[in-house]
Nucleic acid binder design. Structure first.
Length: 867
RNA sequence: GCGGGUGUGGCGGAACGGUAGACGCGGCGGACUCAAAAUCCGCUUCUGGCGACAGAGUGUCGGUUCGAGUCCGACCACCCGCACCA
């Protein structure tokens, strides 16, 4: 099967485009913005792709899963919306421009055309009329409107801040986009830089975003957990330590702590290297200045590598303790204190914090225990190598003595508040979302900087602020910034010469509301309220786990912000979320160590592999995520060409549960291909039977086939409802075996009718998964025509046929299986117990033993407990 | 370190607390064929037995139960996420 394309009986190459055209012609998958009917709505959405130019197997898996859901729900009577679009802004287009001189717009739209053609070959039940790309001015202009509305609503801020600067991409990254100290896209070590940036106030919704997770009962637990951790709520106190002597006008240092109960165990105060007090200390002490410079050089990445190494320097400054009259403590600058968290300053209590202890040991700072473990002896308790962080009784702490940790926290906060030295607060790990990017290929931020008026929004009538076409990529930096004319405008407020904002939005902004735009892609406003109120939330969203935090959190924020500005009325955009697993493949290396593509490799029967052309031995490497660098990729286009879209879809669904990683294998594809052909042959055989009325009588084999048919309906329905597509596939396989077997009884009464019923039902059951073959089979069965499978309702199982005629009851003795008996469904318990005890093998096991207990679970099992 | 998940044949995986291994892949044997491909039929957890059967078996150890892959506790391994979060 390696070289020659299979010569199939079912000619998928002719059939697939034919049915795709037919669906298109009949408008099978069109939805209305505001439907007139009263069918329940169902919005199925897969995460829209970045138009790289080619689809990959991850896309195929994602869109196949979504298509099964969409087609199934449609058959179940829902009015389904299933749109597709393009997440089309982003850096690769600019890189193409720099490397090959092609305009980012042309590059992007060419890629979209190529990918659209590939997706169409998959036979997805998409409403293509809703398609848009985020780089369409018709889309991003509406996004600018959303931004201006958020600005007016106080949900946008411009602030000077330390940012993550990606030196390779030459742009700012959000915290979420920094992974292990490196840029998420470039992989470059991220530097710290101070810049003026636009921020969306996601922190205003921290509480809501956290609380909202509880209501998302159709989201994976782990995604919710990841978001909860990211939002990072912690309760504690903020308190001010007065400087013993003010420095540069700084009179006190504010600190956040979750352990105000341990304030009496304090031995030092530590601030981040970027903290104003550290900067002030550096101005007075060259050694501190040197320490700060070193900390900056190390950046986040080096710090991560040397995570264990805690370093600090004593500034020589002192702070007063809020509770202990006259006591002062040294102020240190420490590399483990993060400016981004809390207040960028902390008080160190080494006895009860692992980090503080490590720091105190290194610099010989005092360690005073103030919490005594339960049952420990106060006279002999001391802190050794490990800090004590559990609950206990507070000691050495004046008015807190004798309290437990919880009560002591409360008492300490009460005292701080009474003294005006601090207050109880909730602190969040979540930062505001910096959205400014110094890039061309993004949505322009619609504001104007005026000397006199400051920040002036672009008037709504002047939207969209379009990207200029004539841009120069020969210089590094932001092409919008050095465009000769684009940024020079007059101030809308005072008419003076002013400067247009040249930053563009982070592309995650684009993907934070596209699902809403799909509801009314032609609307004049960003959303048509009737349409979004009808369609949102998305009933089933499907995509990769890699978006568990970034995209999904931003979208949840956007829904709230858009609701606050009157564009929507749902807080949660995605009622159901399904995260699919990655597609993996074996990797191969040639003798010279080069990675080889799967189609350069032939497998031998003994499991070894060799190079197809040279014949040299090939090392079979790990099964891992498909990646260009490992060359372990399989091109979906080539698979569809050789085997058809249905085969690709069937294999992807059959291999394993969809939330797990799946391995793409040649043998698996072959198996799927064989099965599609087999189904077609079964339908062909049945198509020879003339349709007729329901017969008077059915032979036992015919009745048994009908039972199998209806049990398969029940089984497949249950499997599809629970996303167990691999189980649905298995049920279909079983049923195909039964249907093939029925050919032996072809001449029996009722069998012809039963086989036609079986074949007709199976077309509808497989239609969500392999829609083209389903249509072809239906066409075989009804050559004169009777509508498309895509237009049929889901079959309904006849409960009388699903129920069994005879029950097989397992019989156990002391929990061990000794035999089975067959009984009538309405048999009396006493008769069943008697039959069970009489079963020869069971009888032998019971011989000479006394039965002390008889357990009968109706319809399932008998268990004799013997002495 | 913290949090979460997963451990079932050669492989992917099934299994409301009730006949473990459905279904598929691979393998073995057979039919058809001059032959091959395709197709069809059968076998395929391990051990013993010609066989009927018997014993063992779902990462390890224990517990609950008439009965545990499934529930509970401890541990081991692997995977994922977060990670100096005060």
């Amino acid at each position: 099967m390696n070289d020659a394309a299979p010569r199939p009986r079912y000619d998928f190459a002719a059939a697939e485009p034919r049915w795709q055209a037919e669906w298109d012609r009949r408008g099978c998958f069109a939805a209305a913005d505001v439907p007139a009917g009263n069918k329940p709505k169902y919005y199925v959405l897969e995460m829209f792709p970045y138009p790289s130019g080619k689809i990959h197997m991850g896309h195929v898996r994602n869109y196949t899963l979504g298509d099964v859901v969409a087609r199934y729900k449609r058959a179940r009577g829902f009015d389904v919306m299933h749109p597709m679009g393009w997440d089309a802004f982003g850096l690769p287009a600019e890189n193409a421009a720099r490397e090959r001189g092609v305009h980012p717009g042309k590059w992007t739209y060419d890629n979209i055309a190529a990918m659209r053609a590939e997706l169409k070959r998959m036979g997805l039940s998409l409403d293509w009329a809703r398609e848009f790309a985020t780089c369409d001015a018709a889309y991003y202009g509406k996004q600018q409107k959303l931004f201006l509305d958020m600005l007016a609503a106080g949900l946008v801020e411009r602030k000077e801040s330390w940012v993550n600067w990606d030196p390779v991409d030459g742009t700012v990254l959000a915290n979420e986009q920094v992974i292990d100290g490196r840029g998420w896209r470039s992989g470059a070590l991220v530097e710290k830089k101070k810049l003026s940036q636009w921020f969306l106030s996601i922190t205003k919704y921290a509480e809501e975003l956290l609380a909202g997770l509880d209501g998302l009962d159709r989201w994976p637990e782990r995604v919710k957990l990841m978001q909860a951790n990211w939002i990072g709520r912690s309760e504690g106190a903020r308190l001010r330590f007065a400087m013993a002597e003010p420095v540069d006008g700084i009179a006190d240092v504010e600190v956040f702590t979750t352990r105000p109960d341990t304030l009496f165990g304090m031995s030092f105060l530590a601030v981040a290297p970027e903290h104003p007090l550290a900067v002030a200390a550096a101005a007075r002490d060259p050694k501190v200045a040197e320490f700060l410079a070193e900390a900056r050089r190390m950046g986040t990445s080096e710090a991560a590598i040397e995570a264990a190494e805690k370093k600090g320097i004593d500034t020589g400054l002192l702070v007063r303790h809020p509770f202990i009259q006259g006591a002062t403590f040294p102020v240190w600058v420490a590399n483990f204190v993060l400016m981004e968290y809390g207040t960028g300053a902390l008080f160190g209590c080494p006895a009860h914090d692992a980090r503080d202890l490590e720091f105190a040991r290194k610099y010989a700072l005092p360690v005073l225990p103030v919490v005594l473990p339960k049952g420990a002896d106060a006279a002999h308790f001391a802190i050794g190598a490990e800090a004590f962080t559990d609950d206990g009784t507070v000691i050495n702490s004046d008015f807190l003595n004798g309290l437990d940790v919880v009560a002591a926290k409360r008492a300490a906060i009460a005292r701080l508040e009474a003294d005006g030295a601090g207050q109880g607060v909730v602190n969040w790990r979540l930062r505001d979302w910096g959205v400014s990017r110094q890039r061309y290929w993004g949505c322009p931020i619609p504001v104007i900087h005026c000397e006199a008026c400051g920040i002036v929004p672009v008037p709504a009538t002047e939207l969209p602020v379009k990207l200029p076409e004539d841009v120069d990529f020969s210089r590094p930096g932001n092409p919008l910034d050095h465009h000769p004319t684009w940024k020079h405008v007059t101030c809308p407020s005072c008419g003076a010469a002013a400067r247009r904002e040249t930053d563009t939005f982070d592309t995650f902004v684009d993907s934070s509301w596209y699902f809403a735009r799909f509801c009314s892609p032609g609307a004049e406003a960003p959303t048509d309220r009737k349409a979004v109120d009808h369609w949102l939330p998305v009933d089933q969203y499907i995509g990769g786990i890699e978006h568990a935090i970034l995209h999904l959190l931003y979208s949840r924020f956007f829904s709230r912000a858009m609701t606050a500005t009157g564009h929507l009325s749902v807080a949660e955009p995605f009622a159901g979320l399904f995260t699919q697993g990655m597609v993996l493949h074996e990797s191969y290396r040639g003798a010279d160590g080069r990675w080889l593509y799967p189609d350069e490799v032939d497998h031998e029967a003994d499991g070894s592999a060799r190079h197809r052309e040279t014949g040299e031995a090939v090392t079979v490497g790990r099964v891992e995520a498909m990646s260009k660098s490992k060359r372990n990729t399989v091109d979906p286009g080539a698979i569809i060409e050789r085997f058809g879209a249905d085969t690709a879809r069937w294999f992807i669904l059959s291999d394993n549960p969809p939330d797990r990683e799946m391995e793409w294998t040649e043998s698996g594809v072959n198996g799927a291909f064989r099965f599609t052909q087999r189904l077609y042959r079964l339908a062909e055989a049945v198509a020879e039977i003339a349709p007729g009325d329901v017969p008077e009588t059915f032979s036992p084999a015919a009745r048994s086939l009908r039972q199998a048919t209806h049990r398969t309906i029940a089984g497949v329905t249950e499997a599809l409802d629970s996303f167990a597509f691999n189980v649905a596939v298995a049920r279909i396989h079983e049923f195909a075996n039964v249907l093939a077997d029925a050919e032996r009884h072809a001449a029996e009464p009722g069998m012809g009718w039963a086989r036609r019923e079986a074949a007709e039902v199976v077309t509808r059951l497989v239609a969500p998964m392999i829609p083209h073959l389903a249509e072809e089979m239906r066409h075989l069965l009804f050559p004169a025509g009777s509508g498309l499978v895509a237009e049929q309702d889901w079959p309904v199982a006849d409960s009388a046929l699903v129920a069994a005629d005879r029950l097989t009851i397992a019989v156990q003795v002391l929990g061990k299986l000794r035999g089975t008996i067959s009984v009538a469904p309405d048999a009396a318990e006493s008769d069943i117990l008697a039959a069970a005890a009489a079963e020869p093998n069971v009888a032998r096991s019971l011989e000479g033993k006394r039965i002390v207990k008889r357990i009968y679970v109706p319809g399932r099992i008998v268990n004799f407990v013997v002495a």
